[in-house]
Every structure is written in structure tokens, then in C-alpha cells.
Nucleic acid binder design. Structure first.
Lengths: 224, 224
DNA sequence: CAACATGTTGACCAGTTGGTCAGAATTTGA
DNA sequence: TCAAATTCTGACCAACTGGTCAACATGTTG
């Protein structure tokens, strides 16, 4: 039954794809706003439908449940996170690697603040959806990076710091510019955060990270 | 009318206080859990009532609306925040002052993680309740500290860093141990965070802050 | 064109929401 | 003891919740 439908679907895929994809994206984009501001429990399908400019029943045609919307959204949110994972290897110079990592994380905060807030909400709730990701992918990644940091420190390239705590602090410092944007605008006395503000943030975070790790040398944030 | 009631109230205050206070605290304690996990919109008065072990209508006897509970709770949450504000003055040695500040913030994250999460939720929502606090108290405090940091750096005691960004990063790094506790437990491979973990966090954050500010000398986290 | 799949929608549902209220139970001070 | 103040609570309400569904509309493909 399901299989047959599946086949039919792929036969019609060009026409279907455009409609299906367009509406799916509209819904996910609307959901991103609502989930980011209200959290999972506070978000309503009606509000998502309104922002997507679709009747609620049409939203339910594409996603059976609110949870399904949330799951699909979470996947699209985690993709950039996972990508940034590859970025640090043993052969890198620790200064360059960490500088680049901080820079990318700050950019992500700037470009996808809503995604960052949804992730924050998920963590605050106790990660009911992402617990597997935390236990598996993330845990494994941190263990790898721990090995790399250890090798770097053995080679005298940096101090022997806890990679876990180091990355926890980097994540916190970079994501705060998305999650706590109101607070930061207020503290900086800005109407909106501009390129300069993000650059200043990246630079100070980088300096703190590098010096905190005992890494010396020239590592400008604005170079790649 | 209101005044008369007020007078009557205070005439009976001993008896009232015990009952009123006990139930008020029960409700606020329950609300702290619910608001921390669900956010304002996701929290329900029924759930708060259940955890407080009171009928919902009894909760509404003490607090007219859900928002009133939230406001009262927010006040009790902000008190320790505001206290920690006094702690840094020009006469302090910058190393000692910052070390102490980080230490206190980490302790707060450990002792009142729910409060930290409610604050985080409020910021993510765009600070609908705390916007005045951000514009006034917090802004003013940061401006004061900016002056202090400037004086410290003029005296050659530290580098000339942006106090605003510095405190933003300190807040982020310390509060993350409360807000993102699940993620951190997972990354550290712990069932629960212990004293050692918080000590390690405080020590690394302190080191990053001090070195990032170009402050040298001996500043152990475990000394007062 | 006919068939069939895909997309759209208003009406509808049972359960829950924040909040009200009348009246009963209890505590209080004199 | 007793009247007034305070505390407690079940019954109730209109609005809203996530979700279903049958009927209809719009492609799509032979």
C-alpha cells in the first residue's frame, strides 16, 4: 500500500515537488519563528498556520502533528551545527583552528539566530528530542577533539586544558549573541547589532580562548 | 477601600503571614519548575497548582493571573543578580575582582539553575517583562563597570578591553552550566555535575578572562 | 478526455486553557 | 462566644488547543 503510493509519488515528483516543497518550506519558516519565541509547548499550530498564510488544516496535511513540524525543523537546524563539526583536525595549527571555529560560530549566531534560540529552548527543556544526538554524535565529537587537544598540548603547541569545558565555553560565548540578543543590544546601547559588534565579539572571544589555552602568535579574526 | 483592607491585613498579620507566606512560597516554588521547563506560554496554572498541591482556584486566590505569578517569581529571581552587581569597584585589584565575580556566577548557576533558565527563557522571548530592567539597571551597571575597566587599563593593570563584551561573555560562560545542563552532562560524560566540574569550569573561565584581559599574577579560584 | 493522485478547506471534536464566583470552612481578635 | 476577616474550593465559563475528516478543487498522465 504505502509502497505503491510511494511509487506513484515519484512518478509525479516534478509537479508535486514544487508545491509540496514550497508549502513545506513556508510552514517550516513560520514554525521557526513561533518555536523560537514561544518554545515547543507555547507554540500553537494556529499561529504557525497564520504566519505561513495557510489554513491550519492545510498545515496538518503536510505535517500530521506539531511534533512532526518540530522534528523536521530540528533536522534543518542541526545540519549547520554538524557541518561545523568537521572543522578541527590534528594537523591544523591550534591557533588557526580555534580562531576559525569561533568565527564560524559567531557567524552562525548572526545568520540564524532563530535556529540558535530553538536549540537553546530544546536544551533548557532537557533535550527531549535531541538526547540521542547529545549522547552519540556530540559526545563522540568532543571525545575526538579531546584527543586532538591532548596531542597539541603534548607537542607544546598549547596548554593542557579540558577540551570539553573549552568547547562548552566557546559555544556559550558565541551563541549568547543570538539567544540573548535583546540583552546584548541593551548592554551595548544599540538599536541593532551590526557587523562591528559581531567582529568585536569574535575578536574578544578568540583572544580569551587563545590566551586561555596558552597559544601565542598572530591570529587575526578577519583573516580566513 | 484598598487602604482599609491593608490596615485590617496588618492587624492580623501574624496569622495571615504564616498561611499566606507558606502558600505563596509553595506556589512560587512550583511555578519556578514549570516556567523553567515550559516557558511562560507553555506553562499552565493547573500544572503549577498540581505541583504546589493546591486546587487551581486556591492558586488564583493568591495570584490573580498567571502573569502575576511570573512577575513575583521574576522579582525573587533577580534579587541575587542585583546583589552580585555591587561586587566590583575601582579600588579592587582587577584580577581578584574578576576571579571573585566568575566564582560567584558559577555558584549561582549551580545553586539556582531553574532561576537561570527562567531568565534565559525571558531573554529568548525578547524580555517582555524585563525590558525596563535591561534599559535601566543593567545598562547603568555596565556603564559603571566600563569606567572602572577603563581606569584599570589606564593604570596599566589590564588591557583595554570592551567591558560590555567582557561581561556578556562571562555571563554566557557561567550561566551555560545551568541553562544547558543536559548538554554539559552529556559532553562531560557525567550522570550529574559535581563540585569538581563546577570548579573546573570556574577555573578555566577565570583563566580565559584574566589572560584575555592581560592580567597576570596569582588568582586561585578556590581562595576567597 | 477520463482516471487518479495530490492538494485544499471549513466544519467539527473532545480536551484544556486562564480565569470567575458563590458559598462553605477556618482563623482571628475582642 | 461570635462576628468579621481570611482562606479554601467545586462548579462553571468562553475561548482556544491539537487534530480529524469528508467534500471539494486542482493538477497530472495515459
Amino acid at each position: 500500500m504505502v509502497e505503491k503510493k510511494q511509487i506513484r509519488k515519484s512518478a509525479h515528483r516534478i509537479g508535486n515537488r514544487s508545491v509540496r516543497m514550497r508549502n513545506t518550506l513556508k510552514i517550516l519558516s513560520a514554525a521557526e519563528k513561533v518555536f523560537a519565541e514561544k518554545g515547543f509547548d507555547g507554540a500553537t499550530t494556529q499561529q504557525i498556520a497564520d504566519i505561513a498564510k495557510l489554513p491550519k488544516s492545510n498545515v496538518h496535511y503536510y505535517f500530521k502533528t506539531k511534533r512532526d513540524i518540530y522534528l523536521a525543523l530540528m533536522q534543518s537546524i542541526m545540519a549547520p551545527w554538524l557541518e561545523s563539526f568537521q572543522a578541527i583536525s590534528v594537523d591544523d595549527d591550534p591557533g588557526d583552528a580555534l580562531t576559525g571555529y569561533v568565527k564560524r560560530k559567531v557567524m552562525l549566531s548572526r545568520e540564524r539566530p532563530l535556529a540558535s534560540r530553538i536549540f537553546a529552548n530544546e536544551m533548557i527543556r532537557g533535550a527531549p528530542v535531541l538526547s540521542d544526538f547529545l549522547r552519540n554524535e556530540l559526545r563522540k565529537w568532543v571525545e575526538e577533539k579531546t584527543q586532538i587537544v591532548k596531542q597539541w598540548s603534548e607537542k607544546g603547541k598549547m596548554d593542557d586544558v579540558s577540551a570539553a569545558h573549552l568547547f562548552i565555553i566557546i559555544w556559550a560565548a558565541t551563541q549568547t549573541y543570538a539567544d540573548f540578543e535583546v540583552q546584548i543590544k541593551s548592554v551595548l546601547g544599540r538599536q541593532n547589532l551590526e557587523t562591528d559588534d559581531y567582529d568585536a565579539a569574535a575578536e574578544l572571544i578568540t583572544r580569551m580562548v587563545l590566551r586561555g589555552c596558552g597559544i601565542h602568535g598572530d591570529h587575526k579574526v578577519n583573516q580566513t
